[in-house]
Design a protein around this nucleic acid. Structure first.
Length: 319
DNA sequence: CGGGTTTGACCAGCGC
DNA sequence: GCGCTGGTCAAACCCG
């Protein structure tokens, strides 16, 4: 619903964690009302959550672990723990394809947890986290059984069964468009007004048959350009994009894991706060270019991938 | 005509 | 028990 963008801003709360992140102050102390620190708006085809999502089976659990985001630290998902992992954002703007200039090829800040951006209530989140840790184990077992039986467990849940037991992974993306192209095809099956939010939450399902993955898309109330996408479940198939031949982007997945993302975060934040963005440099490319050398040193024995993906960047930053 | 979106209704979980 | 809220369903509608 693009028409939602023109609405007035009510006062309401979204996720404290996200709010904390988005209202991150620059070192100078001045309050920065927007997430400009992550404003990578013109960066295009980079490995990002799109790539992380790609692959025959997307494992959010391991992805979350890889990103160093522990579900046991519910309130620290984004803001407090320093565990958020802003990623280089993808092209991924399918909505803008077909000639129209992408308003903002999205930048993203990924977060992860079983709840992550999905819950606005911190207290409840904490409780849920504890429950989810147990439930996920049970659910996995249950799902394994169901798979064996060939049953479709997603349609009608037995009484007493709880929803939201699938592993979840949230991405925070700066984008003008709600529905980001992550390589998969999604069908919208619902939309709800969110409490205290002027922006509705949209519900999508993967259109691939028997694929249980869902995602929720909502906007931050503090900055309507911030899109919070929460994925739930695991794809049991390849992404159409991958099938079309973008398999190269899958390759870095292992490298995107664990320390890389954390390191990326560590690299990004200071630079974002202190250098280009602080000086109001509108060109995110500069930021990325500055990021690359450190990546090469620390985590990319072979930076060919990045070079492939952003050749102009690399070439531009290397004499 | 098939596939996607919209939207009101329904249901379940949770807090009071 | 009741009301609120999030999540889902499904009919109607839209579009290529």
């Amino acid at each position: 619903m693009a028409g939602d963008q023109g609405r007035e801003h009510y006062h309401f709360q979204l996720h404290d964690e996200l709010s904390a992140l988005f209202s991150r102050k620059p070192p100078g102390g001045a309050v920065d009302p927007g997430p400009r620190g992550f404003d990578l708006q013109t960066v295009s085809p980079l490995p990002s959550f799109t790539d992380l999502l790609h692959g025959p089976v997307m494992d959010y659990d391991s992805l979350g672990r890889d990103l160093g985001l522990s579900c046991s630290a519910p309130s620290g998902v984004l803001g407090s723990g320093g565990t958020a992992s802003p990623e280089l954002m993808t092209d991924g703007n399918d909505n803008a394809r077909g000639g129209a200039t992408p308003l903002t090829p999205n930048s993203s800040v990924s977060s992860s947890s079983t709840e992550a951006a999905g819950e606005e209530d911190g207290e409840r989140c904490k409780k849920d986290q504890l429950k989810l840790e147990d439930e996920e184990e049970e659910e996995e077992e249950q799902q394994a059984k169901d798979d064996d039986e060939g049953g479709d467990t997603n349609k009608t849940k037995k009484k007493g069964e709880k929803r939201q037991s699938q592993p979840r992974f949230a991405f925070v993306t700066k984008s003008e468009v709600d529905h980001l192209d992550d390589g998969y095809r999604w069908r919208k099956y619902g939309q709800k007004a969110v409490k205290n939010s002027p922006y509705p939450r949209s519900y999508y399902r993967c259109t691939t048959q028997k694929c249980p993955v869902k995602k929720r898309v909502e906007r931050s109330y503090q900055d309507h350009t911030i899109v919070i996408t929460t994925y739930e479940g695991k794809h049991n198939h390849q992404s159409p994009a991958t099938a079309r031949g973008s398999t190269r982007l899958i390759a870095p997945l292992p490298m995107m894991s664990t320390s890389f993302c954390q390191e990326l975060m560590m690299h990004q934040i200071p630079q974002l706060n202190s250098s280009d963005t602080q000086q109001g440099n509108p060109n995110p490319i500069v930021f990325l270019a500055s990021l690359l050398p450190s990546l090469q040193q620390s985590h990319f024995p072979d930076c060919g991938l990045l070079q492939d993906i952003v050749p102009s960047l690399v070439h531009g930053s290397q004499p």
